[in-house]
């Protein structure tokens, strides 16, 4: 087993109970630095609760979360953000009437220097320039930086949301079904964007997805949850989609390579 300090994210024994329902029953999760890690599972497996725990939206009843070897206990989304975790929710959480730069900087606008800055004046020039640089770095296809985000295509909106996460995240980017509503070409460009986050920024990505072909194309490793527990963690190259479907539905808790579910790698 790897030393926990070498892991970007290390989750151990996390439990979360909602009334009579136990959504997480002692989940473990390990995400290595700079990997694209897919989180898989059937509906109700506990994926979204685990994501919420990491995003600080849900406080677990038990268990530990370590980010780059440092234990954290998040009591709100701000805590998770402060620890460098950014989340792209399925609804993207964009302000459709604002241009991309304002969305990238929403809530974290750069102040003008000096007195004006203290009075709350925003440095729009810096915002626009930084946004342009950043979007270029991710090779996004957004041409008009002044256009309302709401008037853009689904893929472009996704790109803005992902870019925002990549811009502020320093430990982990989480994406909830980023390709669910997209067409073929747009899906392709979003997957490319995810790779770029890994390659250009060196950030690990936790990808929640139902789409196994997408997962196989972009992820380095995956973890499968079932009924609130981890049942499998494996390299994508070591598993087939049949293995994953079996793991998700409970037909088999062993990977074809014989790797134990509870032991990563």
């Amino acid at each position: 087993m790897k030393d926990s300090a070498d892991l970007a994210v290390r989750v151990r024994g996390v439990r979360k109970r909602y009334g009579h329902v136990e959504a997480l029953r002692g989940v473990d999760l390990d995400i290595a630095p700079g990997e694209i890690h897919a989180l898989l599972g059937d509906n109700g497996a506990g994926k979204s609760t685990l994501v919420k725990v990491l995003a600080g939206a849900v406080t677990p009843d038990e268990g530990t979360v370590e980010i780059n070897g440092v234990p954290h206990r998040f009591t709100g989304p701000r805590d998770a953000q402060a620890a460098g975790i950014e989340t792209v929710y399925q609804d993207l959480a964009l302000a459709p009437t604002l241009p991309p730069d304002a969305n990238l900087f929403l809530g974290r606008e750069p102040a003008r220097p000096g007195l004006l800055g203290r009075l709350g004046f925003v440095d729009r020039k810096a915002m626009r320039a930084e946004a342009a640089t950043h979007l270029r770095q991710l090779n996004s296809k957004i041409q008009d930086l002044g256009a309302e985000v709401g008037s853009m295509s689904g893929g472009q909106k996704q790109a803005v949301a992902v870019a925002r996460a990549a811009m502020w995240g320093s430990a982990l980017i989480m994406m909830d079904e980023p390709t669910a509503a997209l067409g073929v070409a747009q899906t392709e460009s979003v997957l490319e964007l995810i790779r770029r986050i890994r390659d250009e920024k060196g950030l690990p990505v936790l990808l929640i997805s139902h789409n196994l072909p997408d997962v196989f194309r972009v992820a380095d490793r995956c973890t499968v949850l079932r009924l609130g527990r981890r049942v499998l963690t494996a390299r994508m190259s070591d598993v087939t989609s049949t293995d994953l479907i079996r793991a998700m539905t409970g037909a088999d808790t062993l990977s074809p390579t014989g790797e134990r579910a509870a032991e990563p790698r």
Partner: peptide, 15 residues
């Protein structure tokens, strides 16, 4: 602007 465009997004962004 952000609040009117998407209140939830503004809230999540820390406004």
């Amino acid at each position: 602007y952000a609040m009117g465009a998407n209140l939830e997004a503004a809230r999540r962004a820390g406004v």
